[in-house]
Amino acid sequence: MPRRREILFWRRTDVPGLERLSLEVGPEGVRAEASVLCAEDGGFRIDHRWTLTPDWRALTLEVERWGAAGRQALRVERTRGGWLVDGARRPDLDGAEEPDLSITPFCNTFPIRRTPEAPGASVTLETCYVDAAVMAVARSRQRYDRLGARRLRYVDLGHSAGFEADLEVDDEGLVLRYEHLFERVAPT
């Protein structure tokens, strides 16, 4: 597989905000780096960096937030024994399959790529939910229901239980439109 690089932009549709993500996909894995600027919560900037396996499973997530409280940072890391958050073992996250960073639609790609293609198929998973507003990590549950080849429904069964949104994705499983929250935009 040849190395592929691209730049993606998502615009928030609920509040003023924009994300720029640099994506690099190669035979050794996937790397992504992004910056999010948002006017929500008094305005903030979040930088996030991902290291993924070739089959799009997260190995590390590093998050930095700049806002009214100054700079905050955290690191989530997959190990053979479970998940570490800022270097500390978190047994409450055992069995979680992926991190889910609240501020970006990028991490929805991981379970979307594992959702079977047949309409009506679904995947339910536990996540390490990273709440970017407070920079905290907690276990959460979610489900993805396949509505069509490039359409899914996200159903939150944990942290924001009851929240649902339809997603449109490209051929790679990257979000084009996330109902109520994000839409991909092309640079001009």
Rank of each mutant, 00 (worst) to 15 (best):
R4T: 13
R4Y: 15
R5S: 14
R5D: 13
I7G: 08
I7M: 12
L8N: 01
L8W: 03
F9G: 08
F9Y: 15
F9M: 14
W10T: 02
R11C: 11
T13E: 14
T13P: 11
G17V: 05
E19W: 01
R20H: 08
R20T: 10
S22P: 05
V25K: 05
G26W: 07
G26H: 09
P27R: 14
E28M: 08
V30S: 00
R31T: 10
A32H: 02
S35Y: 12
C38D: 06
A39W: 09
D41K: 15
D41T: 13
G42K: 02
F44N: 01
R45M: 13
I46H: 01
D47Q: 11
H48E: 07
H48M: 08
H48K: 06
T51S: 14
L52Q: 03
T53Q: 10
P54T: 06
D55K: 03
D55P: 02
W56R: 04
R57W: 04
R57P: 05
T60M: 10
T60L: 13
T60S: 14
L61P: 00
L61I: 05
L61S: 03
V63T: 06
E64M: 05
R65T: 06
W66V: 05
G67M: 03
A69G: 15
A69S: 15
R71V: 11
L74W: 02
L74T: 02
R75S: 05
R75P: 00
E77L: 09
E77I: 03
T79C: 14
R80V: 15
G82C: 05
G82S: 07
V85M: 06
R89K: 14
R89E: 10
D92C: 03
L93T: 01
L93G: 02
G95K: 12
A96H: 04
E97N: 09
E97Q: 15
E98V: 03
S102M: 12
I103W: 00
N108F: 02
N108K: 05
P111K: 06
R113E: 05
T115D: 04
T115K: 07
T115V: 11
T115L: 07
A118V: 11
P119F: 09
G120C: 11
G120K: 13
G120L: 13
T124E: 10
L125V: 11
L125T: 09
E126D: 15
T127A: 11
T127S: 13
Y129D: 00
Y129I: 02
V130F: 06
D131K: 01
A132D: 04
A132T: 10
A132Q: 04
V134T: 12
S140R: 00
R141P: 03
R143A: 07
Y144K: 00
R146W: 05
L147S: 00
L147P: 00
A149L: 15
R150S: 14
Y154K: 01
V155D: 01
D156G: 12
L157N: 02
L157T: 05
H159C: 06
H159D: 07
A161M: 11
F163A: 11
F163V: 08
A165M: 07
D166I: 11
L167S: 04
L167M: 14
V169F: 03
D171F: 10
E172D: 15
E172Q: 15
G173F: 04
V175E: 04
V175T: 11
Y178F: 13
Y178S: 02
F182Y: 14
E183L: 11
E183T: 10
R184V: 01
R184M: 06
V185P: 00
A186Q: 13
P187E: 14
P187C: 12
P187L: 15
